[in-house]
């Protein structure tokens, strides 16, 4: 097995896992199980990042989404009375809207695949596999602070505003 083959196997494994996890997230009745499948899906996405050589994004995906957001999700879910949720309607009666959206998305994807056919662009880019790029974090940091400094700062300020807003809104006057 060459490294390319290994990373191809890894890609299909993670991709399948991500799709499976996403489907199970919405179809399973128990909310905690849903959360577990969502975690699976997020972890599989992190794995795909890794096969693409984006190590930094892989680590950040796990730290933020899995280690941060999902922990808070489960934290809240655990306090909810699950029996009530079990007797509620699981799906809204808006299937046709969702179906329409899915159709649009599918046609977009099909369009992209049709136009890219024969160019091999759907393969995993060669040279990115196996050996992980050694300077990933450095490149990421430089890009963020040199080329994209302004968008980065704007996003930071936005996040800070959200943070302070959340604190102000939840704070009780004692």
């Amino acid at each position: 097995m060459t490294p390319t083959q290994i990373s191809q196997i890894a890609f299909y494994f993670f991709a399948g896992l991500a799709v499976l996890g996403a489907i199970l997230t919405v179809t399973v009745r128990n909310v905690v199980h849903s959360a577990i499948f969502l975690i699976t899906s997020l972890l599989a996405t992190a794995g795909i990042f890794l096969t693409l050589g984006a190590q930094f994004v892989f680590a950040v995906q796990i730290i933020l989404y899995v280690g941060g957001i999902m922990v808070l999700f489960i934290f809240v879910i655990m306090l909810v009375n699950l029996d009530v949720a079990l007797h509620q309607l699981q799906f809204n009666r808006q299937g046709w809207v969702a179906g329409l959206l899915a159709l649009v998305l599918a046609s977009q994807l099909g369009f992209a695949i049709w136009f890219a056919r024969g160019e091999g662009s759907l393969d995993i880019p060669a040279g990115r596999t196996g050996a992980l790029s050694p300077q990933n974090v450095e490149q990421f940091g430089l890009a963020l602070f040199e080329k994209y400094a302004l968008p980065f700062e704007i996003a930071s300020v936005l996040l800070l505003v959200a943070l302070i807003g959340a604190v102000v809104m939840t704070k009780k006057r004692v």
Partner: peptide
């Protein structure tokens, strides 16, 4: 030998908390 070594360790060990939450639940 990972370029993101320490970040990887932090990321992976932060998942251990799920064992505790899910076990308790």
């Amino acid at each position: 030998e990972l370029n993101i070594g320490l970040l990887f360790i932090v990321a992976v060990s932060s998942m251990g908390i799920f064992g505790i939450i899910l076990g308790g639940w």
